[in-house]
């Protein structure tokens, strides 16, 4: 009986760990992907705007 309980406990713990890891990975992945998208968007926007402004007005960059 105690062995069954122990197995059940370990199984439950493993399941919990899996759920925890799923949320941890979802958390980090969403943050990294969002930041990468922001970087790409920022670079694209910067290029588009810089192309519209004469060089002498953005020489300080």
């Amino acid at each position: 009986m105690s062995v069954v309980l122990l197995v059940a406990q370990v199984s439950r713990a493993t399941e919990d760990r899996g759920f925890q890891w799923a949320l941890v990975l979802a958390c980090w992945a969403s943050v990294v992907v969002a930041l990468a998208a922001l970087v790409v968007r920022t670079v694209q926007r910067g290029r588009k705007l810089a192309a519209q402004v004469p060089e002498e007005q953005r020489r300080w960059m």
């Binding site: 920022t42 670079v43 910067g46 810089a50 402004v53 960059m61």
Partner: peptide, 8 residues
């Protein structure tokens, strides 16, 4: 060089 907001 492509105009952008980057610098060294």
């Amino acid at each position: 060089m492509v105009a952008s907001t980057s610098s060294p």
